[in-house]
Design a protein around this nucleic acid. Structure first.
Length: 286
DNA sequence: TATCTTGTTAATCG
DNA sequence: ACGATTAACAAGAT
């Protein structure tokens, strides 16, 4: 799944490669991904010059001279910059530029390419409700966000209205690094656990961010990200040994999603911290 | 061939 | 208001 590290990397690549290009023609093979009619979408952006790309959570925002282009890659896919004459085999939306290059968009499931008119970005409900980017949340902000919240920590992390950019791939290692079971209830957290969660978010995202995303997603040039399977600590490693204590990693169902945890390092019952870098202080408080 | 799995969002229910 | 649950969506794996 493309999550913050991948989306942030794509935004950087788009900023660098696409800024200044002018859209010559748009082709839509799958109108279902649009938020407006196919005709409205193509006429709105035809002739637009791209001004720059940023990201928020899992959304990419490209500003143009004719409004905003918003892309969400859903559960994964490709965002490829190619020569207009050599389109990839699979694509759903194509932005052909005047310089005869093309941005070919494909998602294998559930992605969006949306349009928002100039000044109407705040009317785009799917992105307007997003919480701050996970990587930018400070300790104090996290503490405040968790304040008075019930429910499980995993649902909190995956809820894009709270913190934006974390999905079901990175959440495994974030919780492992924090020493927290995905089903731990937030209002039982000690101060140390809040701190551990903040550290987990940082340490769970930054290595991949530095390596321009995970191996299962490709960059604008078709090259896989540098964050490899061996860089993942417990996610998708069922039956393998925990890198900290050697216990076998377990896969469990948490609501509608799966979780991968080390049962020893991430106990469901709050207890004294086991040996992990994030934790040193004792943790009895309520 | 048919069934299962997969993640995110919106909608619904308590 | 909030949390939990579920439907909807497409393609690959088995």
């Amino acid at each position: 799944m493309p999550e913050l590290p991948e989306i942030s990397s794509r935004a950087g690549e788009m900023q660098k490669e696409l800024t200044g290009k002018t859209i010559r023609k748009i082709e839509v093979l799958q109108p279902k991904c649009l938020n407006v009619s196919k005709r409205k979408f193509t006429t709105a952006l035809a002739g637009a010059k791209l001004l720059g790309t940023t990201y928020h959570g899992k959304w990419l925002f490209t500003d143009t001279t004719k409004g905003h282009l918003l892309i969400n890659m859903g559960m994964g896919g490709d965002l490829l910059l190619v020569d207009s004459k050599s389109m990839p085999e699979k694509w759903r939306i194509a932005f052909h530029f005047k310089d005869r290059t093309t941005l070919a968009v494909n998602f294998w499931w559930f992605g969006y390419t949306h349009y928002a008119a100039e000044g109407k970005l705040n009317k785009h409900t799917m992105s307007a409700k997003l919480g701050p980017n996970a990587i930018d949340v400070t300790r104090a902000e996290l503490r405040e966000m968790l304040q008075g919240r019930r429910g499980a920590v995993k649902s909190f992390l995956l809820n894009q209205e709270r913190i934006a950019g974390i999905g079901n791939a990175y959440v495994h290692d974030i919780l492992f690094l924090a020493g927290l079971h995905p089903q731990r209830i937030i209002d039982t957290f000690t101060d140390d656990e809040v701190e551990a969660l903040w550290n987990g978010i940082q340490k769970g995202l930054k290595p991949s961010l530095r390596k321009r995303g995970a191996f299962y997603e490709r960059d604008l040039y078709g090259k896989p990200g540098g964050f490899k399977m061996k860089d993942i600590l417990v996610g998708y490693r069922e039956g393998k040994s925990c890198p900290v204590c050697g216990e076998k990693v377990v896969k469990l169902k948490t609501g509608s999603t799966s979780s991968f945890i080390c049962p020893k390092c991430q106990p469901l019952k709050p207890r004294k911290r086991v040996g992990k870098k994030v934790a040193k202080k004792k943790s009895t408080r309520r």
